[in-house]
Computed example of a mutant assay.
Amino acid sequence: MTVSRNVFHVGQHDPLAGPLLAELAIEYSTRYGGTPGEVHAELTEYPVSHFAPPHGDLLVVVEDGEPVAGGAFQRFDAETAELKRIWTAQGQRRRGLGRFVLEQLEAEIARRGYRRIYLTTGPRQPEAVALYTAAGYTALPLDVREEVGYVHPFEKFVPAQAVSV
């Protein structure tokens, strides 16, 4: 069976991003507390421009017409993009979609001329830590945050030949 896979670059309020944000809200509220509605409000309070060109992007992977994975990045500083909202649908995990999303985001980050990628993930997301470690990200010292205790920050440098100028 052949799966039709497409990658769409969308805005935060695009209907294709809806399942990503809704499922992330449930996932984060289950792991860290708060209601899915409260977490969803936090996810959508970012200005739309954070995840839009020229400094950011939000992509959704669609297979056979259904959103199955996605992720975003925003400008952290002039040289650094910050990954956010990496997501794979609950029923689609363990198929390499998280790694695929990461590769797509990294390629777009390089096209935008960033030289470094930064991200944080929470203490209750060991599968995210494993993904980033396997993808060549370097763990930075833990960052203590009152709301979750600590977060795992990571970085990865974009290879010089990959950066567009």
Rank of each mutant, 00 (worst) to 15 (best):
A162N: 11
A69P: 03
W87C: 11
E147K: 13
E79L: 14
F73W: 00
G56W: 05
G34H: 02
T80C: 15
V151D: 00
P67E: 09
V48C: 10
D14A: 04
L102N: 03
F51T: 08
P123M: 03
R116D: 14
Q104L: 14
P141Y: 06
A78C: 12
Y114A: 09
V60I: 15
P123L: 07
T30G: 13
L43T: 11
G113F: 11
A25S: 13
E155W: 01
F76H: 15
T35V: 05
P19H: 04
D77K: 08
R95Q: 14
I109E: 01
F154V: 01
H55M: 10
F8I: 01
A78Q: 14
Q74F: 07
G37H: 11
V7F: 04
A22G: 04
Y28A: 06
E155N: 07
K84I: 09
E103L: 08
L97I: 02
I86P: 10
E63D: 13
G136P: 04
F51P: 02
Q12V: 12
V144P: 15
G37A: 15
L105K: 04
T138P: 04
G18V: 07
Y32T: 04
H152Y: 15
H9P: 01
R116K: 14
E45N: 07
P159H: 06
I86G: 15
R85W: 11
L142E: 14
D77R: 02
L58V: 07
T35K: 05
Q12S: 08
A130T: 11
E108V: 08
R94K: 11
Q90I: 03
F100P: 00
V148H: 10
V163Q: 07
T121S: 08
R116G: 13
A17S: 04
P15W: 06
Q12W: 04
S4D: 13
G96R: 03
T133F: 00
A89C: 02
V39I: 15
V68L: 00
L59K: 05
S4T: 08
A139I: 01
E27M: 09
G91P: 02
E103V: 06
T133K: 08
L20F: 03
F8P: 00
E42I: 12
I26S: 07
V39G: 00
V151K: 02
Y132D: 06
S49C: 00
L43P: 06
L97A: 08
A69Q: 02
L59A: 06
L21M: 15
T80V: 15
D14Y: 01
T133S: 05
V39E: 13
E82K: 12
